[in-house]
Design a protein around this nucleic acid. Sequence first.
DNA 1: ACCTGAACACCGTTCAAGT
DNA 2: ACCTGAACACCGTTCAAGT
Lengths: 197, 197
Amino acid sequence: MTRPRGRPARGQGVTRDAILDAALALLDEDGDAGLTMRSLAARLGVTPMSLYHHVTDRAGLLRALSDRLYGAVLQGLDESGDPVAGIRMLLTRYYDAVVAHPQLTLAIFAEPAAFAGASREITDRLTALLAALTPAHLLWRDILVDHAHGSGLALIAARADAARVNALREAYRQALDCLLDSQTTAALNDSGRRASS
Amino acid sequence: MTRPRGRPARGQGVTRDAILDAALALLDEDGDAGLTMRSLAARLGVTPMSLYHHVTDRAGLLRALSDRLYGAVLQGLDESGDPVAGIRMLLTRYYDAVVAHPQLTLAIFAEPAAFAGASREITDRLTALLAALTPAHLLWRDILVDHAHGSGLALIAARADAARVNALREAYRQALDCLLDSQTTAALNDSGRRASS
DNA sequence: ACCTGAACACCGTTCAAGT
DNA sequence: ACCTGAACACCGTTCAAGT
């Protein structure tokens, strides 16, 4: 029985969740420059300093947002199917999280500590799935993760043009299908084996 | 017969090149936060406002730095060999430019306009090389470019730990070798053909 | 043409004080 | 426990003025 998200019923205090929600909204609207401790406080009808009671500092705020967004990627993953389907699902969800909040992702990219924290769990999960599939799982993991991050970056650079964003999302799915194709898998495994020997 | 780079012989004025050099040094030393118009001016022994005589604003400064770094990637490329070698060389150089100045790359990533400008020429060059090699050249180009960008991001997140940076550089070369392997190429072409039909 | 000084409208964050 | 007001040490950039 957790408290409902958002602002509390009629207390005039600010909750941590309300702060995170407002911060994400500011980020979505105006990007990194639009999210300042002062603008955030103003949106919540409160003094900037009161924010520091719920959040350590601006970097901590970004890390909390990243934890919320990328933590949700891992929740409710279907592990029952074949590994390839699991890998596709994991990466597609990861990419879709970027699509949902590109400005947050960009801010995370710029904050190496937060970035490493956000991608570690997903990377670990992917490693486990790949280990069941191929001996060259570390090579594969790096290729797939790096490709996902680069695709996310391309989407961010496309800047909110909805049509182009959809095309990029479709392109990512196609590229992922190709990379996870059984023939490609076999060829890459073979190539990885030759390179390591 | 161009003027030599750096500060002029004994004039007390600042050249645009001197500004770019100092800005890159600040970026390398302390990252994005370390490069301010004020710190840059101080390093050059000049008033912040004099910088605006050689550079439009901070964003223009970053774009100029990016043009210099990524423009050099395209210069003196050996086009005579087989296309695969050309592609490998282009991407390796691109990645090495990131390795040389990760902080600049990160700043560019965060500035979509500058990012698009920097990668366009390289992307175009790569498209041309791939077109001579495979019908699925657009799919390939996106995979290779996205993978390169994501690998660069991983390197940036590793934060100046020299040993780890070298390992990542080696890993990038191996991944690139695998992706450009003839078997992989064949499999990806096949997969791309099936996906488009 | 090139540089300066002062000023404007901002930042994140600290500190001491209120309830 | 939670919030406030004032202050500190910064930003990028504009403007009017100097040479």
